[in-house]
Nucleic acid binder design. Structure first.
Lengths: 170, 170
DNA sequence: CAGTATATGTCAGTGTTGTTGACATTCCAA
DNA sequence: TTGGAATGTCAACAACACTGACATATACTG
């Protein structure tokens, strides 16, 4: 049920792209590409006291300024304790400020400071540069396919979160 | 230099797919999709004493039976101490055996035991199922684009490793 | 053969990121 | 006013990565 081409290969149409061999290549491509994807920001952050978790928090705070902790929690998919550790250091270092909500004072709204924005800029410039180069090499048709497959690969809740973000930005 | 559509949008041709907004969507898609990508094996492994690192080792040993430790080290991109911790437990639990090399006795060649193969099967079945469903939903053209972009996103050494593996399997 | 290089394994320490569990505070809403 | 939601904090722990140092066996080279 998983060696060779058991999955497909008959059925008249061209379903060769569903061969187990093709699927495995897709899996390995995903593994190697994700390493490249995170390599540049990781390199930058290695010299500071921050890591990938800080990058993610900064990215989504930049993306949706004023977002609440709970909101961020759902997007990032980690526990509040885990996120809180990260946020605490970012606030302590003056990269993020957390303001008590006006309508609901239990909520904390998160914003980047100028220094936080500068770091965000540096990190996303590096990541965008790689993405841009990959997109340019691959061409628009490949990029469209890339995004179609990625969206199909997400969990449904993540797909919703992603779509919401996408619409927010356009 | 990074807000709006500074990157492209003129130049006559359709370079809209290189807009900063598009790049950011690509970045976020990668982030969410990778979570889906690892979710199923992670869930399975959570109930055992193993984690993602064990999965990776098992995958590539299955992929290239008899591979050496050094080889695996380069593919996985971790330190030997890190890999060794994982291999030690896998060997101790009887999922992997390590044989002294015949031509070079310094080398250890790694193989999955029957039990190791069973676990590999379980894990990759789960991962392949998701990949298959994503591929089927997206269609062959999108899949081709997906792989093109991923390859362009890898570091050059990883691209080489990936290509080598790809050719080994076909 | 002597010396150097390679492949592997191991010990000890450290850092980041994730997890549970427990508990306090604040505040909205029924 | 009471219950529950949102947030924060403390403590303990585990997985997985890192560095540095050292040991052993083997292979290669002059």
């Amino acid at each position: 049920m998983s060696d060779g081409r058991s999955t497909s290969a008959y059925s008249g149409e061209n379903l060769l792209f569903l061969t187990d061999e093709q699927l495995r290549q897709g899996i390995e491509a995903m593994f190697f590409a994700y390493r490249g994807f995170t390599a540049d920001p990781d390199r930058i952050l290695a010299n500071m006291a921050y890591g990938r978790a800080h990058h993610r928090a900064i990215h989504f705070i930049h993306r949706a300024p004023g977002t609440t902790v709970n909101n961020l929690l759902n997007i990032l998919g980690v526990t509040k304790q885990s996120l809180n550790r990260v946020l605490r250091t970012l606030v302590a270092q003056g990269l993020v400020i957390s303001k008590v909500g006006k309508v609901d004072k239990r909520e904390r709204h998160l914003f980047l400071t100028d220094e936080g924005s500068r770091l965000e800029q540096t990190l996303s410039d590096a990541q965008r540069a790689r993405m841009r180069s990959a997109f340019r090499d691959a061409g628009p048709a490949a990029v469209a396919g890339f995004r179609t497959v990625l969206e199909a690969m997400m969990d449904t809740e993540m797909q919703r979160a992603y779509t919401r973000l996408k619409e927010t930005g356009a």
